[in-house]
């Protein structure tokens, strides 16, 4: 079993303090960054430049609103998985990630023969038909790089080049937080 972790950005004490103050959200008040500045005992200019620096380095991905998918009517999600040519995986993975209905898009290792899919893309939609349609759109995009495999020709078992796993129950869900 191999584990690959992301290279970690070095955080300054000030940045850690900033994360602890904002990881549960930005205050929804006229001057939110002033409130943070006051708590950190630095100027608002420093808070704004700290924010921009963390954004540029990818420590902050976005400063945005994240809606509850279900409450907006996006009640269906599917984890689409694809067996695509390794040589082309980065280029095509990037294209799949840019589709507006994809919330996560990753390359992951295969474990043959039981798991042959290397590209994962999570799709969201308001109906079962819509997520099936989105899967179709991804398939169209990937059609030239899908891998055809046949692991067991004697038994005529053909490994599929793609699948969609829909969730039927949430078994556990907790938030990830930086520890104090």
């Amino acid at each position: 079993m191999s584990t690959i972790t992301q290279e970690q950005e070095k955080l300054t004490d000030q940045e850690r303090q900033y994360i602890l103050l904002t990881q549960n959200g930005l205050p929804i008040i006229q001057e939110p960054y002033h409130a943070i500045a006051e708590q950190m005992n630095i100027s608002v200019e420093q808070v704004l430049s700290l924010t921009k620096s963390m954004q540029e380095r990818g420590v902050i991905r976005r400063i945005a609103a994240v809606p509850n998918h279900y409450k907006l009517g996006y009640q269906f999600n599917g984890m689409t998985v694809w067996d695509i040519d390794d040589e082309q995986a980065e280029k095509f993975g990037d294209a799949v990630g840019r589709l507006p209905f994809v919330s996560h898009c990753y390359l992951r290792p295969r474990f043959l023969p039981e798991w042959n899919y290397n590209l994962f893309a999570m799709v969201h939609g308001k109906t079962e038909e819509s997520i099936a349609k989105y899967r179709g759109q991804i398939k169209e995009l990937l059609k030239e790089v899908l891998v055809t495999r046949n692991h067991d020709s004697s038994q005529d078992i053909i490994t599929k080049s793609n699948d969609m796993l829909t969730s039927t129950a949430i078994l556990k869900k907790t938030g990830l937080r930086l520890k104090k």
Binding site: T3, T5, Q6, E7, Q8, E9, L11, I19, T22, Q23, N24, G25, L26, I28, T51, M54, G58, V59, I60, R61, R62, I63, A64, A65, V66, P67, N68, K71, L72, Y106, R108, F120, L176, R177, L178
Partner: peptide
């Protein structure tokens, strides 16, 4: 809770720690 989060979204790996699916 129509918005589950509002504010900076941090890269989970930058917060330290390791993840896997």
């Amino acid at each position: 809770k129509v918005l589950t989060r509002f504010g900076p979204m941090f890269d989970a790996a930058s917060l330290g720690g390791a993840f896997t699916l």
